[in-house]
Structures are given as C-alpha cells and as structure tokens.
Amino acid sequence: MKLHIVAALAALALPLAACGGDGDDALADRAEDQAEVQADQAEAMGANDAVVDQIEEDGEDRADAIDDSDVDTDDLTKGQQDAMVNGN
C-alpha cells in the first residue's frame, strides 16, 4: 500500500515538477502532521504499535514524495493539495 501511495504521488507530481517548488515544504509538513493525527487517533482506539508506526511511516513517505516533487502549490487547487496530503 505504501508503495502505491508513493508511486501515485510521484505520478501526480511529475507533470508539476518543473513548476518551481513553492510551498512544497509546507504541504509536506501538512502530510506529516495529518499522519500524526491519524496515528494518534488509531492509538487512542487501541491500535497496536505496528499499525501506529506504519501510519506514521506512510505520512513521512508522503511528505518526502511531496517535497521531492518540488511542486508549486500555487498551481494546485485545494482539493489537489488535500489529495496529496491524504495520499489519495
């Protein structure tokens, strides 16, 4: 699943890679923060450590993919940004 998310983000970001990268760091931070929230919620609901760790790792991978894409977030709609943050 993680590989699919990273591949999807890379494919989504590839056409945008030449856009200059404005805001990609902030968008990457949002992805990591979102994963932390999801991990905290899973932990509060009794998920085991492996599940919580995987959620966090997936968020870090999404953040890395977003940052590596060098995407110009000004060229993305809110929906596109949210999709990248959430791994959709």
Rank of each mutant, 00 (worst) to 15 (best):
K2L: 03
K2H: 01
L3N: 06
H4D: 06
I5H: 00
V6I: 15
V6A: 12
A7M: 04
A7K: 03
L9D: 03
A10N: 11
A10L: 06
A11D: 09
A13N: 12
P15A: 09
A18T: 12
A18Y: 11
A18P: 09
C19W: 10
C19S: 14
C19H: 10
G20S: 09
G21W: 10
G21P: 09
G21L: 08
G21R: 13
D22P: 00
D22K: 12
D24G: 05
D24C: 15
D25N: 14
L27R: 00
L27A: 07
A28M: 00
D29R: 10
R30N: 09
Q34D: 10
Q34H: 13
A35T: 10
E36K: 09
E36C: 07
V37F: 10
Q38Y: 02
A39R: 03
D40E: 10
A44I: 00
A47S: 00
A47G: 01
N48W: 03
A50D: 02
V52F: 02
V52Y: 07
V52A: 02
I55E: 01
E56N: 11
E57M: 12
D58M: 08
G59F: 06
E60D: 14
D61M: 11
I66K: 13
D67N: 15
D67L: 14
D67Q: 14
D67P: 05
S69P: 08
V71H: 01
T73W: 04
D74L: 07
D75F: 08
L76C: 13
Q80M: 03
Q81P: 00
Q81Y: 01
D82M: 05
A83H: 08
V85Q: 05
G87P: 04
G87W: 09
N88D: 15
